[in-house]
């Protein structure tokens, strides 16, 4: 068979056929891999939550999103047997050595850090990637920290007058990690105080009613006597 001539019609037809076949093939592969990819993503998220809120794999997760500082925070409230055992917050910082760092941090009901870990980062391998649990035990020191007890309520590295020991030769990554947790903590605490404010209204009413009943009962009892 002779080689096709480069006429306008031939070229158009060839490119059209090739792209059409490619499109169909890719659509087919996409359909096959859609479920495994989604499953891998879910699995990854569950594992990430379970690291910062141990026991999350046995409970249900309530998800809520809010936008802060030009990015998106996601809160995962972990409920086991009807009790909230903690909230994992997916937070971020743009101040990493390689730009964006995404951090998952778990808080207990009082806002103390349960545990934290890096989800995504572009930090230098061997230095900044020590923020990740799988590489180094550096972020163990965040366990149990209570930001509300800190100076100015700010989580900082020791160089900046805080309590966090920065990674040697990766202060910028350490600062970004603190910044991400700080952002997550603030959003979490704001969320709690908002929820408390909403809850308070009916609470006060009930208390008042109870007091009134009590007073009436007492009065009735007094009258009876």
């Amino acid at each position: 068979m002779a080689k096709k001539e480069s006429t306008f019609f031939n070229m158009t037809l060839t490119l059209f056929v090739i792209t059409a076949v490619a499109a169909v093939a890719l659509g087919y592969v996409y359909n096959i891999t859609k479920d495994p990819i989604q499953k891998a993503k879910d699995e990854k998220l569950k594992t990430a939550i379970n690291i910062v809120v141990p026991g999350a794999d046995k409970g249900t997760i309530e998800e809520s999103k809010l936008s802060v500082d030009g990015g998106e925070l996601v809160m995962y409230k972990v409920i086991v047997d009807g009790n909230c055992i903690g909230t994992a917050v997916k937070t971020f910082s743009n101040n990493g050595f390689g730009g964006l760092i995404t951090v998952m941090v778990g808080f207990d009901s009082e806002g103390k850090i349960i545990d934290s870990n890096v989800l995504e980062h572009k930090e230098t391998p061997g230095l900044g990637d020590k923020t990740s649990k799988s590489v180094a035990p550096w972020n163990e020191q965040f366990k149990g920290l209570d930001i509300s007890q800190m100076k100015d309520q700010m989580l900082k590295v020791t160089k900046d007058g805080g309590v966090v020991n920065a990674i040697t030769a990766a202060t910028i990554s350490s600062r970004a990690y603190c910044d991400a947790i700080q952002r997550g903590w603030k959003a979490y605490m704001d969320n709690i105080s908002k929820a408390v404010a909403e809850d308070k209204q009916p609470d006060t009413d009930e208390t008042v009613n109870e007091t009134e009943t009590d007073v009436e009962q007492i009065m009735e009892e007094t009258n009876n006597e």
Partner: peptide, 27 residues
């Protein structure tokens, strides 16, 4: 494939295979 469009044709073929391996590896 006509000679004048062989490079774009090759690139489309290559890109398709790359996307396939990309999806398969992600899954």
């Amino acid at each position: 494939i006509p000679d004048k469009v062989r490079i774009p044709s090759f690139i489309v073929i290559i890109a398709s295979f790359v996307t396939i391996i990309d999806l398969v590896m992600a899954g």
